[in-house]
Amino acid sequence: MTAYSMDNSLGGEADVILTSHVKGFYYGPFLALRNIEMKIFKNRITAFIGPSGCGKSTLLRCFNRMNDFVKGARLEGQILFNGRNIFDASVDAVTLRRQIGMVFQKPNPFAKTIYENIAYGPRINGYKGDMDELVEQSLRRAALWDEVKDKLKKPGTSLSGGQQQRLCIARAIAVQPEVVLMDEPCSALDPISTRRIEDLMQELRDLYTIVIVTHNMQQASRVSDMTAFFNVEMREGSRTGELVEYAPTTTIFQSPQKEATQAYVGGRFG
């Protein structure tokens, strides 16, 4: 892996918030990921791209330890969050997930009102401030406030798919996380809703660090500052994901160093 300095289009050096030293990630006996060395920069949007099964979602779910729920999942190596290994015995996964939020592929609002969807996270975190204010602020940040301010008592599931996904983003940021992980957040949405969420990500960049997994290369090139290209390697009958190239998005799309990257972003496979 070449180390890149962060003088990309945004300019200036950025702080590192997450560092992956993953040696190997296993589902039972199967090696799903190996040798992932990368740094995620603070207040930047980092996109993970690559063909299906390349382990990009798996890596994303390592960052907030969502893979803890997968039986037989095992990680060798370390992931540092603000310099601290998140797999350390002293790190509580529940607390970690409050700092590293997540937006999922399919919009998954709770079967509660719009208001309660947002208030749930802060409430379980023992938030003491003005809940109405926090709900409004979160919905405003997710660019949803104007559409739902008159129906906060309606069920979250009554919204359209795109609105539901923005509700889920609002719900995630209501907990005031440092990082928001997005696992193909637009794959279930129409182009207009997708556009709105991409615009939203640009507005959220100043407040949060965003890591997004996407199948859509145009999306990665539109929204992200850094892009990581993952590829699958067949070895001994099992598919193992590897980080092929990680660089500022412009580099990945205009002058990729590796042949596989070139082939993928050029649309020759994937």
């Binding site: 907030n64 969502m66 729920f69 529940v94 607390t95 970690l96 997930r97 409050r98 939020g101 997540m102 999922f104 399919k106 998954n108 609002p109 709770f110 079967a111 509660k112 749930y120 996270g121 379980i124 975190n125 889920c168 719900r171 995630a172 907990v175």
Partner: peptide, 27 residues
């Protein structure tokens, strides 16, 4: 109750108890 909803709850930093009593059971 969709598995997605449990994931969402855990993703927000819920404990198992909170996920079951505040999200899964009410649903």
């Amino acid at each position: 109750v969709p598995q997605d909803m449990r994931q969402a709850a855990y993703g927000l930093g819920s404990t198992s108890l909170q996920t079951v009593t505040k999200v899964v059971l009410p649903t």
